[in-house]
Design a protein around this nucleic acid. Structure first.
Length: 462
RNA sequence: GAGGGUAUAGCUCAGUUGGUUAGAGCGUCAGUUUGUGGCACUGAAGGCCGUGGGUUCGAGCCCCAUUAUCCUCCCCA
């Protein structure tokens, strides 16, 4: 019998990790709530056709598919054989990349946006627009695990659907800013507009080149200007076009400086002007009570998902070696994919698992997040134990977490248990205290110890 | 999908040109110590050296394969 293992890229979470993760979830959820978003949950699995083709060619490969049941079963042996034969045929088709619904018709959720779009398309008659929902659930991707990348991870999404107002973008920026400030994580919220990228493509003489251009410039941080230029040339852009892109990529400085430089470069392009207007609007609504979040323009920001049409977001933690910890943007017609056209939307996503890793790396979790049991009653004899049990119950009734040591044991052992579990107070109730109706309360961190009346224990440990 | 590293005690890791009975620190358990923990000391338990082949008189060490895991690229949260 070999040791049991976990599927690649999945994890168990022990008590302290769960507590810290919940701290992040609760912080994000509370911000979503105060901005007026409503919760939604969708199933772990969706129909295959709901997901396929929504994330690009690469994305389809990363979707976890669920094998159909009963691939070789039937009411009679003959039918079972027939079914098995059909399954074999379908499997051949699957291998050659054709119709696969005979083999797999369900798949695990890949993100929260597409299931949300599916939900809105199914329920648009009942919803009040603009519809603001948030969703905190795990998603699954058949990616190769590595640092900051898991096969099962949580996303926390907030989307507004049914409104073209840029106020939504401003509010979502505010959600990012307040959440990361509450969590104590210094971040850069990078924004750009797909319209700016479209304008760049227009300036280079072909909107059809937009994908080529964005794919190449998105790599600027990683491979450098020269290699980006080489890649552009390889993708069929001429010297003049590459020249314009180079000037575009060299835009730098403060937000206002960047805007000026872009204006100079794209002075008479209407699409660029629209994009700049969007960016300006969002910048003018920067929240003032969120000092840890800095909103910066990043004209090289492109983002892969091809359904974005307006403002796009990406969040990077400052001082941590980690990819983006959040992202999102505006999509003009997401539900169109599901037969309900003309419903625009905009949304953002938090990557909790990466936020956790960053907070762990930068040591940002407040100590009290890990607090468990508040007080441990020592077990010092039969009668003492009975009294301690009663006192523990009284504390529990008042919402104070209390434990009674499970057996009579030496002080040493009971103290060590309290220490290891990080229990803040121990309550010592021995024969003497039992007789006097008192109890000794010791603060584990300071070593301070007081004898108090049994009725006063709760107030003593608050 | 492409490339690289690692695999030895519960955990982190040593292990000499290939040579007798594979080590350390931490952790665990027990004792010093049955009314005051964290410290110290003493002792104990705990290993098919990832798995399968091969080379050799002899393999934890060399070779091949395989699996797992970590990292990089692609892409992403």
């Amino acid at each position: 019998m070999s040791k049991p293992t976990l599927p690649q890229g999945t994890r168990d979470f022990s008590a302290s990790v769960v507590r810290k993760r919940n701290y992040i979830f609760n912080t994000i959820r509370s911000v979503f709530e105060v901005y007026g978003f409503q919760p939604l949950e969708t199933p772990a699995m969706e129909n295959m056709e709901t997901l396929m083709g929504k994330y690009g060619e690469e994305g389809d490969k990363l979707i976890f598919k669920i094998l159909n049941n009963g691939l070789a079963e039937g009411a009679t042996p003959e039918k079972a054989l027939e079914k098995a034969a059909r399954s074999r045929e379908s499997f051949e088709k699957l291998l050659s990349g054709k119709n696969i619904s005979d083999i797999t018709e369900r798949a695990l959720r890949y993100d929260l946006t597409i299931p949300f779009a599916r939900y809105v398309a199914m329920n648009h008659g009942q919803l009040t627009f603009p519809f603001k929902r948030y969703q905190i659930q795990p998603v699954w991707r058949a990616d190769r695990p590595q640092r900051g990348r898991y096969r099962e991870f949580y996303q926390c999404d907030a989307d507004v659907v049914g409104s073209r107002s840029l106020l939504n973008e401003a509010e979502l920026t505010g959600i990012y800013a307040t959440t990361f400030t509450k969590l104590g994580v210094p971040v850069e919220i990078r924004i750009n507009s797909r319209k700016i990228l479209a304008a760049l493509a227009e300036l280079c003489g072909g909107s059809d080149k937009m994908v080529d251009i964005t794919v190449a410039i998105d790599k600027l941080d990683k491979i450098g200007l020269e290699k980006v230029k080489a890649e552009l040339a390889q993708r069929g852009l001429d010297e003049n076009q590459i020249n314009i892109i180079e000037r575009y990529l060299l835009i730098a400085g403060s937000n206002t400086e960047k805007i000026e430089q872009l204006r100079a470069l794209a002075s008479n392009n209407a699409t660029a002007a629209q994009g700049l207007e969007e960016i300006n609007f969002v910048l003018n609504y920067q929240p003032e009570d969120a000092p840890l979040a800095e909103v910066v323009i990043d004209f090289t920001l492109a983002r892969g998902l091809n359904y974005y049409t307006g403002i796009i977001f990406e969040v990077k933690a400052k001082g941590a070696n980690m990819g983006s910890i959040g992202g999102g943007g505006r999509y003009d017609d997401l539900t169109g994919l599901f037969g309900v056209p003309n419903l625009p939307g905009v949304g953002i996503s938090f990557g909790v698992d990466r936020i956790y890793d960053v907070m762990e790396e930068l040591n940002l979790f407040p100590q009290e997040v890990e607090a468990s049991t508040k007080v441990l009653f020592f077990n010092l004899g039969e009668a003492e134990c009975a009294k301690a049990f009663q006192l523990a119950q009284e504390l529990r009734a008042r919402g104070i977490s209390a434990e009674l040591f499970h057996e009579q044991a030496k002080f040493d052992k009971q103290f060590k248990y309290a220490e290891k579990k990080g229990i803040q107070y121990v309550a010592i109730l021995g024969s003497e205290e039992l007789q006097n109706g008192t109890c000794k309360i010791k603060n584990q961190s300071t070593g301070e110890q007081n004898t108090v009346a049994q009725a006063d224990i709760a107030s003593q440990i608050q």
